[in-house]
Simulated scan of single mutants.
Amino acid sequence: MPKSYRVRTELDAILSDLGEGDPVPSERDLALRFEVARETVRQALRDLVVEGRIRRQGRGTVVSRPKMVQPLQLQSYTEGAISHGRVPGRLLVGWDDVPADAGTAQELGLNGGEPVMHLERVLLADGERIGLESSFLPLARFRVLYDTYDPTTSLYAALRTLGVTLDQATERIETVLASPREAALLECTTALPLLRLHRCSIDRQGAPVEVVRSLYRGDRIAFEARLRT
């Protein structure tokens, strides 16, 4: 059995007996306990940080709280966070008009270069940065949001007040690494795997409403779907 695998197995057993916020033994102590080099322990700890099992706190390491699990369904981030006992929040990064690129224009049924509203926000859970969301909406239809909408609140709730009911969406999930800008906004490193979600939502009249491109920290959040035959 490779040493790294044995160390990881032993660390899993240690973490199973600890609770959220409990300190993890130091690299030195673990290296002595497992009779391996500190670099072997260090790599195993890095893997656990990436997975969200542990997190750095000061000069030590503690057990992380469980990941927030978001359902893959047509609901707002706010609704999903509240359903899991978390306090949602948003930080506005930018909100302005931009010309639609070819892909966005096609999904929204617009001409290339036609103006769209671009809303970019950092998503929070209990004050912790876990996601970066970019929403694109047809400007001609939703210009009124500039006068009526608070961007730190749920966009879907605001759309409902305008009489817009979302009916269906197409969503794609991929794994990516953060750019330096994205890492700075999410307060993580560029080596941390992110989950990228791309969604196009349609209302009950069959009209495209939004294109959303979201990045989520893989160490803070997971997604699940209920499947039926």
Rank of each mutant, 00 (worst) to 15 (best):
2 P>Q: 11
4 S>I: 11
4 S>D: 07
5 Y>I: 14
5 Y>P: 00
7 V>C: 02
11 L>A: 12
16 S>F: 06
16 S>A: 14
17 D>L: 12
20 E>M: 11
25 P>D: 05
26 S>I: 13
29 D>M: 09
32 L>R: 12
33 R>E: 08
35 E>R: 14
41 V>P: 07
43 Q>D: 03
45 L>W: 05
51 E>F: 10
53 R>E: 11
56 R>W: 08
59 R>H: 06
67 K>W: 04
69 V>G: 07
69 V>P: 08
70 Q>R: 15
72 L>P: 02
73 Q>D: 10
75 Q>H: 02
79 E>Q: 15
82 I>Y: 08
87 V>K: 12
91 L>Q: 14
92 L>W: 03
94 G>V: 05
99 P>A: 04
100 A>K: 07
103 G>L: 10
106 Q>Y: 06
107 E>H: 05
107 E>Y: 03
108 L>H: 02
109 G>R: 04
113 G>A: 14
115 P>G: 07
115 P>I: 04
115 P>L: 08
116 V>F: 04
117 M>S: 06
118 H>M: 12
121 R>V: 14
122 V>E: 02
122 V>F: 00
124 L>Y: 01
130 I>E: 05
131 G>C: 01
137 L>H: 03
139 L>Q: 15
140 A>P: 09
141 R>S: 15
143 R>E: 15
144 V>C: 08
145 L>T: 13
148 T>V: 14
150 D>M: 01
152 T>K: 06
156 Y>I: 10
160 R>Y: 00
167 D>T: 02
170 T>R: 01
188 C>G: 01
189 T>R: 11
191 A>K: 07
198 H>K: 03
198 H>W: 04
203 D>S: 00
206 G>K: 02
206 G>D: 06
209 V>N: 00
213 R>K: 01
221 I>S: 06
222 A>I: 00
